[in-house]
Amino acid sequence: MSRLITAIEIDGAGGDPGAWRGPEVDPGAILTGELALRAVQRAEAAGIDIATFAGTLEAPADAAGRVGVQLDALGLAARIAPATERIGLLPTITVTHTEPFHVQASVATLDYVSAGRGGWIADVSTSAEAAAVIGRRDPAPAADLWREARYVVDVSRRLWDSWDDDAIIRDAPTGRFVDRDRLHYVNFTSPTFSIKGPSIVPRPPQGHPVTAVRVSAPDALQAAADAELVILPETTDLAERVAALRTTDGATTPRVLVSVAISFEQAGAAEQLAGSITDWQAAGVDGVHLRPASLEVDVPIIADELIPLLKARKVVGEARAGTLRNRLGLSRPVGRYAAGSGR
């Protein structure tokens, strides 16, 4: 069997809303990003492939026992990028109320800051709270928003291609820094937006940063056809859902990860989880997306116990070097507008 992809979720102090209250947690480190950075560095040292970053447009609920603020996922990933070397970084970006042109430019910039380890999880929002935060449009049905999200993914890739790889000249003696013939208009129109282009950011190191979709609702399933990485919830019919993704009309061949919330409060929990991950691999998944209840408590156990167990079972191996696309076994796309691309 092939080596499984491993990913870990960064969400405040952890997936448990009360994780910040643990005696091992410095609450101030949540807001400075230090707690997240420490968790990602531990994960990277253990050989984990990807860190994902939870994010929403809505402010967290103002309730007793909960942290009432959340750092921006993209900003946090950019903060962590220069302090890491190998792990992929995928912030969640809600495309419903944000401008597609600026979304793609931000993801491209993350790819530069991380030296080719960037990507994003495209998400939508149907809530009135998110609409009120931005104030640009009213809430809409999820099916409409996921349809729009597919257009955002499409135009993002076109804008990443709007600069040829050799568009930058930097010829100081002649004063020519960009070859204008190697920049391209995308002239993209969807039912809800239009973009002329080109991008304001040169073509990213990976060509296309990795695009992921979290299939947490049926309406997101069609958008998964456009993703290179698909995150599925743990379900009893996992094998059937993976098979359905593999046969979706028009789909590429996405890497499918099963997402699971974890807490190592009980003895033997790491061994039990290793067994479950082995079963998921047999069900056809390409990897596992771990959502620790507490970053300070659970991530060290993931790094020191779970990953060694998976290596001993030959479920995971040594990570590939290079860009995130290389690490996931994905080729670097040829720019669609470049001469001789045939696209």
Rank of each mutant, 00 (worst) to 15 (best):
P100E: 04
L110V: 06
A78F: 02
I87R: 07
A83N: 01
I48C: 08
G55A: 04
T96Q: 07
A54C: 01
A108K: 02
I87E: 06
P60G: 05
A77C: 09
A81D: 05
H97G: 06
P91L: 11
V69A: 15
L110W: 04
Q104I: 00
G65E: 09
D72S: 14
I48N: 09
T109M: 05
R86M: 02
L71K: 12
Q70K: 15
F101C: 00
T98K: 03
I50T: 04
G55T: 01
L74D: 13
A77E: 04
D72W: 10
E85N: 13
G88W: 10
R66C: 01
A54R: 15
A78I: 12
A61C: 00
E58T: 14
E99A: 13
P60I: 13
L76K: 09
E99W: 04
D72N: 13
I48Q: 09
A61M: 03
I93N: 02
F53Q: 01
T56H: 15
G65S: 11
P82H: 03
V95R: 03
H102N: 11
T84H: 03
V103Q: 05
V103F: 15
L76H: 07
D49L: 06
D72V: 02
A63R: 15
V107I: 15
P100Q: 08
V103E: 04
V67R: 04
L57Q: 14
G65C: 10
T56V: 12
T96H: 10
T56M: 09
A77L: 11
P91R: 14
R79A: 12
L110C: 03
G75P: 06
L89P: 12
A78H: 02
G75D: 07
I80M: 15
A77I: 11
A64P: 03
L57G: 15
L57H: 12
A105S: 14
T52L: 14
L57A: 07
I48Y: 09
L76C: 08
I48P: 04
E99S: 11
I80F: 06
A64K: 06
V107H: 02
F101E: 04
P100Y: 06
E58G: 14
H102Q: 07
T56N: 10
P60S: 08
A77G: 07
G75C: 07
A54Q: 08
V69C: 11
T84G: 01
R79D: 00
A61W: 01
D62I: 08
E85R: 15
I48A: 08
T56E: 13
L76P: 04
Q70C: 04
P60F: 10
H97N: 13
L71T: 08
H97R: 11
F101K: 01
A83C: 01
F53A: 05
R79G: 01
T94P: 02
R66I: 03
D49A: 09
T84C: 05
A64R: 10
T98W: 05
L76T: 13
I48G: 09
A59N: 10
A51W: 13
Q104F: 00
P82Q: 02
V95Q: 09
R86V: 03
T94G: 15
V107C: 01
T109F: 00
A54P: 00
G68W: 08
L76W: 10
D72Q: 03
R66N: 05
R66M: 07
T92M: 12
T96L: 08
A77T: 08
A63W: 02
Q70E: 15
F101M: 04
I48W: 08
I50W: 06
V95I: 09
A108R: 02
E99Q: 13
